[in-house]
């Protein structure tokens, strides 16, 4: 059975026009359709990457699948159950900084654990800090850490809850190039260490090609699934030669980019 089953997902936002309010009582409504029947299914343990042009509705889809928003129509099933809200077994890492700036890194990571004795918590937090390479930084506040370190702490906070699904919305988009490459490598390790399904949204085609067991390409808005690719290449992956480089060209081509790459 698949872990995440999405069927016919549609979402439109209603824009209310308030012009001419004093002249007539009539309100004009205008539909802005973002998602137009997105359907896919992801088996447990898959690292699924979603790519698509900017503004195509990736983040909207992310918020619906992770339970923060309702679709206009269509269903999202996780383990066969309809999603009605964010669950504790499905943890999100958002595009923007999600660490609480009023807590230290360690306090942030401890947030994921609720009911255990305090010594247990300290030990476990230390283990997860080490896992993401932040040993010794537990007492620092987020604004005292670099962008990359903050992302690591956030990943640790998600992992410590031992989630079944990890949702990530362009998590490394704001990082510099080298840090992004490091985070990529570590995501591969994390996925191999933890038995979980990852739903990963990115605008970076290379990131998707290096990380994903599945790459789902969305079309322009209103978006649908334009291409669903399965990849079983071993890690680490070299994108410069072979079929991955051809695949990359093909993705760019299908996104409407005809420049030589």
């Amino acid at each position: 059975m698949s872990k995440i089953e999405v069927t016919g997902l549609r979402k439109s936002y209603v824009e209310r026009r308030r012009r001419k309010r004093f002249l007539s009582q009539c309100k004009q409504y205008e539909d802005c359709q973002v998602l137009d029947g997105i359907t896919f299914s992801i088996p447990a343990g898959t690292f699924a990457c979603f790519v698509g042009p900017s503004g195509c509705g990736k983040s909207t889809m992310f918020r619906i699948v992770s339970g923060f928003e309702r679709p206009s129509s269509g269903t999202v099933l996780i383990d066969g159950q309809e999603v009605t809200g964010p669950g504790s077994k499905h943890v999100c890492v958002f595009q923007e900084d999600g660490l609480f700036p009023w807590f230290t890194a360690a306090q942030n990571i401890a947030m994921g654990l609720s009911k255990s004795s305090s010594s247990d918590v300290a030990k476990k937090v230390e283990d997860y800090l080490e896992l993401v390479g932040l040993s010794g930084f537990g007492g620092h506040y987020p604004h005292e850490l670099s962008g990359g370190m903050r992302r690591r702490a956030e990943v640790a906070r998600a992992l410590i809850t031992n989630p079944e699904i990890l949702f990530m919305d362009e998590p490394f988009g704001a990082l510099d190039f080298v840090t992004r490459l490091q985070m990529r490598e570590e995501m591969v390790n994390v996925h191999q260490m933890f038995d979980m399904t990852i739903l990963f949204i990115t605008h970076d085609i290379d990131e998707a090609l290096q990380l994903g067991d599945r790459i789902i390409m969305l079309s322009d808005r209103p978006s649908r699934v334009a291409w669903d690719i399965r990849l079983d290449d071993p890690h680490p992956r070299d994108l410069s030669t072979g079929h991955l480089s051809r695949l990359r060209k093909e993705i760019y081509y299908r996104m409407g980019l005809h420049v030589a790459l």
Binding site: F68, S88, C92, E96, S114
Partner: peptide, 11 residues
């Protein structure tokens, strides 16, 4: 909003 979503996510 992100802080509120994180809070909701962590119950």
């Amino acid at each position: 909003t992100t802080y509120l979503r994180v809070a909701e996510n962590f119950g």
